[in-house]
């Protein structure tokens, strides 16, 4: 029980310190998530237009996913130095896979009959994409997005190992100065941030499925 009160006291004493780390963490996540969404969506869409490209992209992203995050951070330090830049690059590389894959799969899985009738009625390629394929694939794409956001929040905690900001700073400081309350205080906030974000995204996802598919599958 003592540790809990210790952590709570820590939050009280170092409130502005934790608040700053939390904001940094959210900013890093937000920037990464935005970049991932733009690159992931457009790559996923391009993949549905070109099977060969799709195969190559899936191979590359699958491969990158197998690299341990610590190793990737290490390599990036050599190339892009320490700090937020390297952290964001690493977060983007990890986050791309679920978004790319779900965009690709989501669009490809839209019922062929619906696509055919939309083409038969005279939709242009862009209209087909924007008015039929993307809206119908949206719940699947969003599921990938949700996975990616939570993953990025968690992974972002490791990013401070290479000098980036965020709640990882507290965790890292706790480990190096043998101050377990500090480590736990940082970890708890990361977990809390992830849980609350996931909860909000879950509500959005349910709402979306209901509107587009008519049921929460």
């Amino acid at each position: 029980m003592k540790i809990i009160t210790d952590i709570l006291n820590l939050y009280k004493e170092r409130f502005s310190f934790f608040l700053e780390l939390l904001i940094q963490h959210m900013m890093l996540t937000l920037i990464s998530v935005s970049i991932i969404t733009v690159i992931g969506l457009s790559t996923g869409i391009l993949m549905t237009r070109n099977e060969g490209f799709a195969k190559v992209v899936l191979m590359v992203t699958n491969f990158m996913y197998t690299i341990p995050s610590i190793a990737l951070f290490g390599v990036l330090v050599i190339i892009t130095g320490i700090g937020n830049k390297s952290a964001i690059i690493a977060l983007v590389i990890y986050g791309l896979l679920p978004v790319i894959r779900n965009t690709y799969v989501g669009i490809n899985e839209v019922d062929n009959q619906i696509i055919e009738s939309a083409i038969g009625m005279g939709s242009t390629n862009i209209q087909l994409l924007l008015r039929v394929q993307l809206p119908l694939a949206l719940p699947v794409i969003f599921a990938g997005f949700r996975t990616m956001v939570i993953m990025t929040i968690a992974l972002c905690a490791i990013a401070s190992f290479i000098g980036a900001g965020g709640l990882g700073v507290a965790i890292w400081r706790g480990i190096t100065t043998n101050f377990p309350e500090m480590t736990l205080a940082g970890s708890l906030l990361v977990a809390l941030l992830a849980i609350i974000t996931d909860f909000i995204l879950e509500i959005v996802e349910k709402h979306m499925k209901k509107r587009i598919w008519g049921s929460v599958k």
């Binding site: 009959q113 619906i114 055919e116 009738s117 939309a118 038969g120 509107r211 587009i212």
Partner: peptide, 19 residues
């Protein structure tokens, strides 16, 4: 595109847009 828009098209599975 304009040819298709000027021809009505009905298929077995209807292909109504569910959203």
């Amino acid at each position: 595109i304009s040819l298709r828009r000027s021809i009505g098209y009905v298929i077995q599975h209807i292909g109504l847009l569910p959203h």
